[in-house]
Computed example of a mutant assay.
Amino acid sequence: MTQRPAHLSQPGLARITVEAADESTALTIAYRLIERRNLTGLSAPYRVPDEEGVRVAMYGDGTPLPAPGDER
């Protein structure tokens, strides 16, 4: 059995990677996701050797955010 990474130690947590052709697009899409879901801030944009594109990563909780005005 493999051990889960510490940042994925609970059910409902996930790492999300946005990959795009350029840094601007990757950041724009990632920030739009952050606005709508319970996600962490972004990693610095990075490239994978021998692969095209730019990536940014964030972590998320599958628990939905309350709707605006919902006081739970």
Rank of each mutant, 00 (worst) to 15 (best):
E35N: 12
T40C: 10
A30N: 08
A26E: 08
T25W: 04
M1T: 08
A26G: 11
R55Y: 14
S43D: 12
H7S: 10
A57Y: 01
V56Y: 05
D61F: 00
R4I: 00
Y31A: 12
L8V: 10
P45S: 07
G60Y: 01
I29Y: 10
R36D: 06
R72W: 01
R55F: 14
S9G: 12
L33F: 09
V18T: 00
R72M: 04
P66K: 03
V18M: 10
V54Y: 01
A57N: 06
M1E: 12
P11M: 14
A21F: 04
S43C: 12
Q3F: 07
D61I: 05
R32C: 13
A21S: 06
G53W: 02
G12H: 06
V54N: 06
Y46W: 13
L65Y: 04
D61S: 15
E35R: 13
E51K: 15
G60M: 05
R72A: 00
G62A: 14
D70L: 04
G62L: 12
T25H: 04
Q3N: 12
P64K: 05
E35V: 04
S43G: 06
Y31L: 11
L42M: 13
V18D: 07
E52W: 04
G69R: 11
P64V: 05
R36A: 07
E35G: 13
L27I: 14
P68H: 01
E19C: 14
G12W: 05
G41E: 15
A26V: 04
S24N: 12
A6S: 10
L13V: 05
L65H: 01
D50E: 13
D50R: 13
P11W: 13
P64F: 11
A57T: 14
V56T: 03
A30F: 03
Y59S: 05
A57E: 07
S9R: 04
Y59N: 07
P5W: 04
H7R: 11
R36C: 08
E35F: 06
R37C: 14
